[in-house]
């Protein structure tokens, strides 16, 4: 039969606390390593493809010819002026359904939300839904890029012009506004992602 431990025993019980020193050594090695490769600001690329020839521009139309209404090309032009953002379709330059201005906000910035919303309306009204898919060969990635096809040949294209002193950040923000619209948290619709930058006037 088992006897209880003697009440007179003087043997000290060893401390069984976990030794954290090796774990701390590991932390001291890992943390500086991860800190050196940590990326607190994420970088990305904005890919821009200049037009193939200066005369081509964003479409086949020359500057002095107005494209036909309901014809094959939209000829969307977004122009950043001192007081407003001007949007023109089918080469129209008179105020009307195909040419309008979005004035600047009270703080002096361009109203990019209104621009995105108006381009979305334009996309739905003039360009319509995709009628299929088209593809082009990407020489850099050595693969085919697939994109939606529309009834208008330049249904994904937009020309952007601005005053010479317009800062680059503003141009980037307008390009982002023309590229896509966020309908909801999960749904983002394409607007006019192929943007050509041209001289003002």
């Amino acid at each position: 039969m088992a006897f209880k431990p003697s009440s007179r025993r003087s043997r000290q019980e060893e401390d069984t606390e976990l030794n954290l020193l090796p774990v701390m050594n590991l932390m001291v090695c890992l943390i500086p390593l991860l800190l050196s490769i940590a990326q607190f600001t994420q970088l990305a690329l904005l890919e821009y493809l200049p037009p193939a020839a200066e005369g081509g521009g964003g479409g086949e139309n020359k500057d002095n010819q107005e494209p036909e209404l309901g014809g094959g090309t939209l000829s969307l032009l977004v122009n950043l002026t001192e007081s407003a953002v001007q949007v023109s379709m089918f080469g129209k330059l008179e105020l009307g359904p195909y040419f309008y201005e979005i004035p600047r906000l009270a703080d002096g910035k361009y109203n990019l939300k209104a621009l995105t919303d108006s381009l979305w309306s334009t996309k739905q009204r003039e360009v319509g839904s995709s009628i299929g898919l088209d593809s082009s060969y990407n020489d850099i990635l050595l693969q085919y890029d697939v994109y939606p096809k529309y009834k208008l040949k330049d249904g994904r294209e937009c020309t952007l012009t601005a005053m010479p002193e317009t800062p680059f950040q503003v141009v980037i923000a307008v390009m982002d506004a023309c590229k896509a619209k966020e309908i909801s948290e999960k749904e983002v619709v394409e607007l006019f992602p192929t943007i050509t930058l041209k001289k003002f006037g």
């Binding site: 600001t41 994420q42 970088l43 990305a44 690329l45 904005l46 890919e47 200049p50 980037i172």
Partner: peptide, 8 residues
């Protein structure tokens, strides 16, 4: 092809 570097 021009890639402009931007901050996300």
């Amino acid at each position: 092809t021009i890639d402009f570097l931007i901050i996300k």
